[in-house]
């Protein structure tokens, strides 16, 4: 058995790549798959804090690439989920410290040990993105229903095509059903029509994402959170299961909307 390498990317920063990587990793590990998450955002390491593993870092990806540490020494195993491991990015170097050939070798060395290698790509379309995309067997693009994020996603789709990778799949993140219903947010169908790629998941805006990141316990560990369940369904789809897309209810109550409207009549309530 050899691992599937999935790169999670977006172009635009701040749309939720790291959160997505962490949660898909957790969700796959909870289903018994062996997963290694690689933080490819060298210089801006964050996957460690989202996964709650920041205190256990000894070596990082650059140490491995430059031969100061063996891959197995640098990988941190999650104590909550023994199937999950993480390779942290270096914090004191920049993206040029690693090149695409080194990423290929690194993932090839890992392939026989796990079922999935998830690569958290840095924002942008340059060196760091090229590193992250080089070893990818599959590419997942994360976007939010906002003009800037969707436009950048389209650029990235073009670059993934140019890199001769299979057609990427889309995660629509931070969807706010109430705003979509009011006609004030791009709907899933709108985004799919514009980007013309297949959907693999919709993650609703959920405060649990922030509270879980605060605690370093990814939301996919929480079976009550809407977003957590969304990641669980994405993991199932990655494993080839046909899981219907959930229809999210507008959870802003009438009372809340009324309160919001009083606070900010022009904003129309959020």
């Amino acid at each position: 058995m050899t691992a599937t390498v999935i790169t999670i990317t977006s172009g635009k920063g701040g749309v939720g790549k790291t959160t997505t990587t962490a949660n898909i990793g957790v969700a796959l590990a909870r289903r018994g798959k062996r997963v290694a998450c690689i933080d490819a955002d060298i210089g801006l390491r964050n996957l460690d804090v989202v996964l709650g593993l920041e205190n256990r870092i000894v070596y990082d990806i650059v140490d491995v690439v430059e031969g100061r540490a063996r891959l197995r020494q640098a990988l941190i195993r999650d104590k909550r989920l023994p199937e999950l491991q993480m390779l942290p990015a270096a914090q004191t170097r920049d993206k040029t410290a690693v090149n695409p050939q080194q990423m290929l070798k690194l993932t090839d060395d890992l392939r026989s040990e796990v079922d999935f290698i998830l690569i958290d790509s840095p924002a942008g379309i340059e060196h760091g993105f090229k590193n992250a995309i080089a070893p990818a067997d599959r590419v997942i693009i994360v976007t939010t229903p906002e003009v800037s994020a969707v436009r950048d996603a389209d650029r990235i789709i073009g670059l993934v095509e140019a890199a001769e990778k299979p057609k990427p799949q889309l995660i629509l993140n931070r969807l706010r059903p109430g705003m979509v219903k009011r006609g004030d947010m791009l709907a899933t169908e709108d985004v799919l029509e514009i980007l013309a790629i297949d959907l693999i998941g919709i993650v609703p805006e959920d405060e649990s994402i922030i509270t879980s990141a605060n605690r370093g316990a990814p939301v996919a560990l929480d079976d009550k959170a809407q977003a957590g369940l969304a990641y669980t369904r994405i993991a199932a789809r990655i494993l080839g299961q046909d899981v219907p897309f959930a229809v999210f209810e507008d959870n802003s109550t009438l009372l809340k909307r009324f309160q919001n409207w009083f606070r900010n009549p022009n904003g129309g309530g959020s």
């Binding site: 906002e146 003009v147 969707v150 436009r151 389209d154 650029r155 073009g158 705003m179 979509v180 009011r182 006609g183 004030d184 947010m185 791009l186 709907a187 709108d190 514009i194 409207w261 009549p265 022009n266 129309g268 309530g269």
Partner: peptide
């Protein structure tokens, strides 16, 4: 009067604006 619109549940439909602007921007990008 957007607050009146929201009071009566009329759609301000900024999503439609977003969609057409995006289509145009992306066409040029591509």
């Amino acid at each position: 009067m957007s607050w009146l619109d929201s009071l009566f549940g009329r759609k301000s439909a900024s999503a439609q604006v977003a969609k057409s602007r995006l289509k145009f921007a992306i066409q040029i990008d591509r």
